[in-house]
Design a protein around this nucleic acid. Sequence first.
DNA 1: TAAACGTATGAACAGATATTCATATGTAAG
DNA 2: CTTACATATGAATATCTGTTCATACGTTTA
Lengths: 137, 137
Amino acid sequence: MAEEKQDKSEQFVCSACGDKHPQERETGCICRCPEIIAELEQCMPCEEEIYDVSELFRVLGDLTRAKILFALSQREMCVCDIAEVLGMTQSAISHQLRVLKQARLVRYRREGKAVSYSIADHHVKTILSMGIEHVAE
Amino acid sequence: MAEEKQDKSEQFVCSACGDKHPQERETGCICRCPEIIAELEQCMPCEEEIYDVSELFRVLGDLTRAKILFALSQREMCVCDIAEVLGMTQSAISHQLRVLKQARLVRYRREGKAVSYSIADHHVKTILSMGIEHVAE
DNA sequence: TAAACGTATGAACAGATATTCATATGTAAG
DNA sequence: CTTACATATGAATATCTGTTCATACGTTTA
């Protein structure tokens, strides 16, 4: 009976490769063939790599942090000056600098009582300006 | 008396410009001069522009959406195929595609019952690959 | 027209997160 | 050593956000 079912044209012409495939997809969707699904699954980056990328963008994707990075892309600054430029509290800035530090997007060094922050590397500047460019269209 | 106070070296040598400035900063920090603060405030992008940039990165900064964009950067795909490749439900993918649509990062077109999604423009691919490059180091 | 299928969406819930407040830490000056 | 100042941080809170579930919508086919 299972045989009969299979013989009774439980197949469809794949729109992607032109071949015929049995309807064995879990989702029920038959618009693409299983081979192509498998191929895509194969060429996807590994979980860790793709997580790191989304993590990078997540850190950039906050208004306060974006402002901080813009300011630091102009010049090295201490915490309270960043706070003044952005019109925010020292505590809020400090918390966000911690996030940026952990993501290795900024560097810091002590200068007496103050701590001076700066952009970690030119890569960060490049990604930032890519973002501006895209938004400006 | 206010005059006396000012005369009594209520000034400091600015480490940035070498000039002397009165201690009139609200935060109390005197590590940078007011002129430089003002200059930075001036060269900061307008609120709307910087918001749009952070918004762009915010949308990219989610694991599921990053995966979707990676998949779509390989080929145009329908919703249920994306769901299968990522091993997630159709609903979850559809909700995220809505976010990507609103951010104009993906395009879509009906193909019979199915809806095919694709990357909106090459700019998106570029930003994505910049992210990968940065993470790979 | 009814059934099947692919997709979209509203409500609900759990988990993440940004700011505030209070306070601790580290450094320099008196 | 005490005081002042710049920064860091833990706790609390309000807000945001991603997934699930149920269901509606739109298209095709019988």
